[in-house]
């Protein structure tokens, strides 16, 4: 099995707080891996480390065996890691279409002059077609011209995933994608995640509190507590683990 993402002895310290403490984690090709843990366990921090928003204090992050520590977030996206955010971060005043279209900019190889003078019209056309196709696939095409901020919450989450997919990632990081969704929407999301993994041949690392979703789709689970790895295993192993249960009940 091919390792897509590998975190080795990863730590980050904020002031005195060890937010991630000596974490080892791997995501294999085409695998869905869940990262769970109580509030403040360090899950989002882990994503921020992988995407280059924070620099680790020690340890290594490798994408396809190449270290990505010290790279900027936009460089990391170009290398194939895309993400969504716990608090949705859309380009709110822009249209649904533009939100997705912007994510194509990273493949623009014209300079600003050819873009301004429209000498790149072929590429522009290609980008538009790609964005349109993606919206079609994600069932958002009818909302194309709607401002992102006017979408209902569940669709905003969906759009954020579509935007991440538009960067053509090999690894997708989802930070609590089901937060604020009703059971119906959560079910749809579950199948969506499983769907895109096959369709776009992705590896997915997902943070979630909805246990149904996690147990349904993940191949393996990592449990974080106070920045430390508490347990790792298959859904059934984790479900019945005493330590995990007590961590969640807050003993």
């Amino acid at each position: 099995m091919k390792e897509v993402l590998k975190l080795t002895n990863l730590s980050i310290i904020f002031g005195g707080l060890v937010a991630i403490d000596d974490l080892n984690l791997t995501v294999n090709d085409n695998e869905i891996v869940a990262l769970i843990g109580p509030n403040g366990a360090g899950k989002t921090t882990c994503f921020n480390l992988i995407t280059g928003i924070y620099k680790p204090t020690t340890g290594n992050i490798a994408l396809n065996r190449q270290t990505i520590v010290g790279k900027r977030p936009d460089e990391i996206t170009k290398l194939g890691i895309a993400r969504t955010f716990q608090n949705i971060r859309l380009f709110s005043e822009l249209s649904v279409f533009d939100n997705v279209l912007i994510a194509d900019h990273l493949r623009v190889n014209d300079n600003v002059f050819t873009a301004t003078t429209r000498l790149n019209f072929k590429q522009e056309k290609f980008m538009r077609e790609q964005a349109e196709q993606l919206l079609e696939e994600q069932g958002l095409i009818h909302l194309k011209d709607e401002k992102a901020k006017n979408l209902p919450y569940g669709l905003q989450r969906k759009l954020e995933i579509a935007r991440a997919l538009a960067t053509k990632p090999s690894l997708l990081l989802l930070d609590e994608p089901a937060a604020g969704m009703n059971p119906q929407e959560t079910m749809e999301l579950t199948s969506l995640i499983d769907n895109i993994r096959h369709k776009y041949n992705l590896s997915i690392l997902v943070i979630e509190h909805h246990m149904d979703l996690i147990m349904n789709i993940s191949d393996r689970i990592y449990v974080l507590n106070f920045g430390k790895l508490l347990k790792t295993g298959t859904p059934t192993e984790i479900q019945n683990d005493k330590d995990v249960i007590s961590a969640y009940l807050g003993e």
């Binding site: 995407t51 928003i53 900027r72 977030p73 936009d74 996206t77 170009k78 895309a82 993400r83 955010f85 971060r89 859309l90 380009f91 709110s92 005043e93 822009l94 533009d98 279209l101 912007i102 994510a103 194509d104 900019h105 990273l106 623009v108 600003v112 873009a115 301004t116 522009e124 980008m127 935007r163 991440a164 538009a166 960067t167």
Partner: peptide, 20 residues
């Protein structure tokens, strides 16, 4: 597409970075 990138930065810097 450059103008769109500018507007993305205006809308949300962290998100803009996250799409490359």
């Amino acid at each position: 597409s450059y103008g769109r990138a500018f507007m993305a930065i205006r809308e949300n810097e962290i998100a803009a970075e996250s799409v490359g």
